[in-house]
C-alpha cells in the first residue's frame, strides 16, 4: 500500500514537473541602439526605453542592449544582457545592475563611422534563440539608414520566423526632408526584408506611449 502511494506521489510530481515550462511564456527583448553619426545624441531616449522595459519585464524574461556600429555582428557590441532570475528579489537587483550598466554606456558612447544594422539584427536573433523565449522582440533604435563598411556582405534573408521587429524613433534625415519618398522607401525596404525572413514588422515613433511598443504587432 505504501509503495503504491509513493508511486502515485512520484507520478503526480512527474506530471507537474513535466507541465512546468519556464521558457515558452518568457519574453526576450533585444534592443539595438544606433551609435553612428548624430544618432548618438538620442541616447537619453534609448535609456528611457530601457528603463521602461526594466519596469515591465517579469522574472524569467531576458533583456539585452547592444550598439549598432561598423560591425555589429559581434558579442562585443552587447552592452548588457540578462535573463532575470525566478525570484523577484534577485530580479530587482539584476534590474538595478542592468540600469547602471546602460547608464554608464550612455555616458561614454562614441559615434561610429558605419552602421551595420543587419549584423546587429543577426546578433539579436542568435541571442534570443539561445534564451528560448516564447515571445521574441528586436527593437531597433535607429534611423534605419544602413551604411556598411567595405567588403561586408549583408544582402541575404535573415531568419526571423517568430520574431517581432520594432523600429523605434526612426528619425528623418536631411535628405528625407527633400524627398520624403526616401524615408518611406527605407521603411518599406526594411518591412519587406523582415517579412521575407518570416518576422513581423512595426514602427513606433511616438515614444511618449512606450506601452505601445510591446502591444500586439
Amino acid at each position: 500500500m505504501k509503495n503504491r502511494l509513493l508511486l502515485l506521489v512520484l507520478v503526480l510530481l512527474g506530471v507537474l514537473g513535466g507541465c512546468a515550462d519556464s521558457s515558452t511564456h518568457a519574453t526576450g527583448i533585444y534592443l539595438l541602439v544606433d551609435t553612428s553619426g548624430t544618432y548618438a545624441q538620442e541616447m537619453n531616449k534609448a535609456r528611457a526605453i530601457v528603463n521602461y522595459m526594466l519596469g515591465t519585464l517579469q522574472p524569467g524574461d531576458s533583456l539585452a542592449v547592444a550598439r549598432i556600429d561598423s560591425g555589429s555582428f559581434s558579442e562585443k557590441d552587447i552592452v548588457a544582457k540578462v535573463t532575470f532570475d525566478g525570484r523577484p528579489s534577485v530580479t530587482n537587483n539584476q534590474k538595478r545592475n542592468f540600469g547602471t550598466a546602460v547608464e554608464d554606456f550612455a555616458r561614454s558612447v562614441k559615434g561610429s563611422a558605419h552602421t551595420d544594422i543587419t549584423g546587429g539584427l543577426l546578433q539579436a536573433v542568435e541571442f534570443l534563440n539561445e534564451t528560448r523565449s516564447g515571445s521574441k522582440y528586436v527593437l531597433i533604435f535607429s534611423d534605419l539608414e544602413e551604411d556598411l563598411d567595405k567588403g561586408q556582405v549583408r544582402n541575404f534573408d535573415i531568419p526571423l520566423s517568430g520574431f517581432k521587429v520594432i523600429a523605434l524613433n526612426v528619425t528623418k534625415l536631411r535628405s528625407d526632408n527633400i524627398d520624403p519618398r526616401e524615408y518611406l522607401s527605407r521603411l518599406d525596404a526594411w518591412r519587406e526584408r523582415v517579412e521575407a525572413g518570416g518576422g513581423q514588422w512595426k514602427v513606433v515613433n511616438d515614444l511618449d506611449r512606450l506601452e505601445r511598443i510591446l502591444a500586439d504587432v
Binding site: L16, C19, A20, D21, S22, T24, H25, A26, Q58, P59, G60, D61, F84, D85, G86, R87, P88, S89, T91
Partner: peptide, 19 residues
C-alpha cells in the same frame, strides 16, 4: 501569490498558469 514566486520561481508555468 507574489511571495510564492520567491519560493517556486516566477518564471515557470504549469500550462498557461504561473507555477
Amino acid at each position: 501569490a507574489l511571495p510564492m514566486s520567491e519560493m517556486v520561481g516566477g518564471g515557470s508555468y504549469i500550462g498557461h498558469f504561473k507555477t
